[in-house]
Each structure stands twice: as C-alpha cells, then as structure tokens.
C-alpha cells in the first residue's frame, strides 16, 4: 500500500503539471492563459468524443494507447513521488519501461500509413537510440552515489546527504535535465505546441489518434512529464523530497517547480534543428560521463 498511494497521487496530479506549464508559459508571454485545471477538462471532453481511425491501420494501432498508458503507470509506480526506502524501483527497469513506452508510440506512428506519423516515428526512434547512453550513465552514477539501485533509496539518500556531496552530483543532474527534456519531447528537442507537421516529433505520431485513444496518450505523456519532472526536482532540491505529514503539499511544490523549470526553458531558448540533435545528445553524454567520473573519484577518495 505504501507504493499505491504515491502512485495514485502522481496519476491524479499529472494533468495539473501540464496545466501549470501552460500557465507559466502564458505568464511569460504576458497572457493570462487558461485555468491550470484546463487539461483535466480537455481529457474529459476527449473521452466523450467518437473516434475516427484510418483504414490502413492494424491491431497494433489499437494496442498502442493501452501499452503506452500501462508503461507510464509502471513508470509512476517505479519512481516514487515520495521517497520509499528500500531496494524498490530498480533504475535499469525504469530505463527499460521508458523505452518500451516510447517504442509503442513509435509503432503507433508507423501504423498510420501517413508520412507525418512515419516522420515523427523515425525522429523519435533516433532520439531514443541516442538518449540511452546518457540515461544509463546518469542512472548508474546516481545508483553509485546512493549505494543502491532503488530509485526510492536514491531519493532518500539525497535528502540525507551533505551539502558537499550535492555539489558532486551537480554535473550528473545537468545531464539528467538534458535527458528529461529529450524524453518528454520538450524544447530544445521538440516543440510541444507546434502546429507545423514538419517540426513535430512527438505530436506527429499522435496526429491520427482521436477521442478516448488520444485522451489516453495525452494522459500518458502528462504522467511521464510529471514523473521525470518531479524526480529531477527531488534530486535538485532534496528538501522537497523529505517525508513527513505534509507530503502532498511538498509534492505540489515539486510539481510547481518542475512546471516552472520546463516553462522557463521553453520561453527562453529556441528549438534546435533536428539534424543537430547529435550535438545535444553528445553534450548530455559528456555531462553524464563527467558527473560519473566525479562521483567515482569522490567515492575512491572516500569523500562521500
């Protein structure tokens, strides 16, 4: 049950993250923007619609929303919203589940016979292939730092670590931020608000989905953003991850911070050209390697 409650918290709160990101972006643009609860209404209204589906799709197309939803819920369960001590939520299992969800989304984009869907799939797949090395290195170095492969243990270890050791993980966290932006199809990798098919990655794969299927997919990507965003905030500002009676409140604080970070990045930088993605990923990889080297050296010298 200790796992169930935080997971449900994430599942309930995730559309709020999307609403908060949009609200912060609106504020950056001097607009007032929609209510932060708008995504909930949007999802509900999608559920009430019928579906139109292309005649060229197969059973794979119908499976995709469910597998993607299942894998993101697994993600929400494996990355606890609050630290649960113990060897729970293996980091490499998390990496595998992340990849599984992305792969099925890619299959959905390929099963439409649409050039846009195919293009989004090809790009997303290339990003997944390149994001694996930094992702694995970041996870391995976090595990090394905390002395456990459990994500719960890692978060708990951050709350109790000294200030000096936090500085050591800074480089790894930069790499993690790169990875989080790429995994969630955010700037500078992808533009989530674009209407131009040729600039799309994530959206292009969902162009052919409608009604409840679309709701499932949008909900799944909201969960993914929430999980990875709050994970980053928990590691960046571990005091937010402290366990106590005000857990829900602290989780809300994490949400707001994560949404603000994403909105800030999206309002201040531009999207990169897709064919320069290897530079972005190489940078992420270098940060990940540097962070890992720092942690290894500090472990060797007994500093941590």
């Amino acid at each position: 049950m200790t796992i169930l409650l935080p997971t449900l918290l994430i599942l309930l709160a995730s559309p709020l993250t999307v609403g908060l990101v949009r609200k912060f972006k609106a504020l950056f643009q001097n607009r007032r923007g929609a209510s932060i609860f708008q995504p909930y209404w949007a999802l509900l209204s999608l559920l009430r619609k019928d579906m139109t589906i292309t005649r060229y799709s197969s059973w794979v197309f119908h499976t995709v929303p469910f597998v993607v939803l299942g894998s993101t819920i697994a993600l929400a369960a494996l990355v606890p919203a609050v630290p649960i001590a113990g060897t729970y939520g293996n980091v490499f299992l998390i990496a595998g589940v992340l990849a599984l969800g992305s792969v099925f989304l890619v299959l959905g984009g390929m099963d439409t016979a649409s050039t846009f869907g195919n293009m989004g799939s090809s790009r997303e797949m290339s990003l997944i292939a390149l994001v694996e090395p930094p992702l694995f290195i970041v996870f391995a170095s976090l595990a090394l730092f905390a002395g456990s492969f459990g994500m719960g243990d890692i978060i708990a270890h951050f709350t109790s670590a000294t200030a000096g050791s936090h500085v050591l993980t800074a480089v790894t966290l930069i790499a993690l931020f790169f990875v989080v932006l790429a995994e969630n199809a955010r700037y500078p990798v992808d533009n989530p608000a674009t209407h131009l098919e040729l600039t799309m990655v994530h959206e292009a794969m969902m162009l052919e989905y409608s009604g409840p299927y679309l709701a499932l997919l949008e909900y799944a990507s909201a969960i993914k953003l929430t999980v990875l965003g709050t994970l980053f905030v928990s590691l960046l500002l571990p005091s937010f991850a402290a366990s106590g009676t005000v857990l829900a409140l602290l989780f809300l604080g994490k949400l707001i911070l994560a949404a603000f970070l994403v909105a800030f990045v999206e309002s201040t930088i531009v999207k990169m050209r897709f064919y320069r993605m290897q530079e972005y990923m190489a940078l992420a990889f270098l940060f990940a390697l540097g962070g890992a080297a720092l942690i290894i050296l500090s472990k060797l010298s007994g500093a941590v």
Partner: peptide, 20 residues
C-alpha cells in the same frame, strides 16, 4: 496576448481528428 482565447478554453489543434 490581448485576446488570449486560451483562457476561455479554446485551443487550436494540428489534426482534424483532434478537433471539436
């Protein structure tokens, strides 16, 4: 920023399959 129709619940989408 002046009209800001997003706050009334309107949004423009990229595919007719997403549209009301």
């Amino acid at each position: 920023a002046y009209h800001d129709s997003e706050r009334f619940g309107l949004s423009f989408v990229a595919s007719p399959r997403h549209a009301d």
